[in-house]
Design a protein around this nucleic acid. Structure first.
Lengths: 103, 103
DNA sequence: GCCATCCGTAAGTGATAGCTTACCGTTAGT
DNA sequence: ACTAACGGTAAGCTATCACTTACGGATGGC
């Protein structure tokens, strides 16, 4: 299996992580800022960010004592590419099956 | 939140469900046939299919005592559309942030 | 140097996901 | 009708996940 695709899907499959992802879609944020916008504690956010980072969907940089997270466009683009492969294969297979069915 | 997108991501986030999804990408299959191709029991496959069906990713039809499952192209296309919205928003936001950063 | 802020990680807990076996309803063949 | 094949669901178990609090390390301001 495509473990890269899987980790990306798993990362966004969790609602809280998806919420973090969408928050970061409005611009870079520090861990504290994310936690204040979400109904979970700061450590929880940290743990989710770790997963998102492992999946390559976010990147981080130090800024003083803070740590600012932002979306990682390369990772996002890569995940989308893998997605599209699965998508298109599924669509092709369905088209073939429909054609074979009509004959 | 976009609960439709969430349920679709959650559905494909599980490796076994993704495996089922990919198997169906090779053509329609009955529950038994799926179970024989996967390292889990038939009831487990049934339960996964229920999730995939709820997410709108597969459809099923009766064929004698068997029940044949196949990919649902409408659901797949819809999920992809929702995906792309999130994707493109993320990309736009990143481009804006990069631009604002360079100024 | 000292304190405050910020963050990651460890440890522990409750809920849930995914799996199994067991059971039952439905359909087809004889 | 009887039997066999197929599949959905219930019940139960275990592992894992998401969360919490507590702790410790790093950075910056005074």
């Amino acid at each position: 299996m495509d473990t890269y695709l899987q980790s990306g899907l798993d990362a966004l499959g969790d609602p809280t992580r998806m919420a973090i992802f969408q928050q970061l879609g409005d611009g870079p944020l520090a861990v504290n800022e994310l936690a204040s916008r979400l109904p979970v504690s700061r450590p929880a956010v940290s743990q989710h960010l770790k997963v998102l980072k492992t999946a390559g969907l976010v990147s981080d940089r130090k800024a003083g004592t803070r740590r600012v997270y932002q979306l990682n466009p390369e990772g996002i683009a890569l995940l989308r590419t893998h997605f599209d492969q699965v998508w298109e294969k599924a669509m092709r297979a369905f088209a073939q099956a429909a054609e074979a069915d009509s004959q």
